[in-house]
């Protein structure tokens, strides 16, 4: 669909023009990682053991900022409505935004890894599997998150509503991503990585399609 490509190009350009916000979100994520380490205390063993969990928690928290932000520019002048009325297919608009958000979150995840390695003294394991998991996990955050962000940015109290709606939904993503990342980092004696990866892929596919289908209803009045 050419409209999807036009939408993707628009959202990528939007993100590039507001790249200062990415830095802010990254700093938030890094701060979260630091705070988590304070909560655990300086015990090297405990930090290393939970590094994967903290990485994904920090990523999840930072994602609510990034996802919420992604719709501000759309709503302040009713720009998204302007496109919908052209008419532009809401499905195309959804995928453009969701893919752009996915790229941003994946980049955020990769940027936070060195921070995690240093703070928690946690060896990253294989770089390629780790990047792959970050891609799969952030997709699971981005696809439903983009839909929820489109909803919540239009109502008051949106800051609270987005995490409130998103976090229970992405419990499987958190479990799978953390488990799989731990396995990549510390070894996988029972070959469980495949099942977790499969779970992530299934979640991503299901929600990428479901949210694409439902997005139209969310942006229509």
């Amino acid at each position: 669909m050419t409209q999807a490509l036009v939408a993707l190009r628009k959202d990528a350009l939007l993100q590039w023009r507001t790249r200062g916000r990415f830095v802010a979100v990254f700093v938030f994520g890094a701060t979260a990682l630091l705070l988590f380490s304070f909560a655990i205390g300086p015990s090297a063993g405990a930090l290393r053991q939970h590094a994967a969990g903290f990485l994904w928690l920090a990523l999840m928290l930072a994602s609510t900022l990034a996802l919420g932000d992604s719709f501000h520019g759309e709503m302040e002048n009713r720009a998204l409505e302007g496109l919908v009325l052209l008419p532009a297919s809401p499905v195309a608009l959804y995928y453009g935004k969701a893919l752009a958000n996915w790229a941003q979150l994946a980049l955020l995840g990769v940027a936070l890894v060195p921070f995690m390695v240093v703070l928690y003294d946690a060896p990253p394991g294989g770089a390629l599997p780790l990047i792959g998991l970050i891609l799969l996990g952030t997709a699971g955050l981005s696809f439903p998150g983009t839909l929820y962000a489109a909803m919540t940015v239009q109502v008051r109290g949106s800051q609270t509503l987005l995490p409130l709606l998103l976090f229970p939904l992405v419990v499987p993503v958190l479990l799978a991503a953390v488990s799989a990342t731990s396995l990549v980092m510390t070894g996988d004696p029972m070959d469980q990585l495949r099942s977790w990866t499969l779970l992530l892929v299934c979640f991503d596919l299901i929600y990428a399609s479901l949210c694409g289908l439902l997005f139209g209803r969310v942006v229509e009045s």
């Binding site: 439903p144 839909l147 929820y148 909803m151 709606l165 229970p168 939904l169 929600y207 479901l210 949210c211 439902l214 209803r217 969310v218 229509e220």
Partner: peptide, 10 residues
């Protein structure tokens, strides 16, 4: 519409 969408997703 929104709560129906959210309920289906959940």
């Amino acid at each position: 519409v929104w709560s129906a969408v959210a309920a289906i997703i959940a």
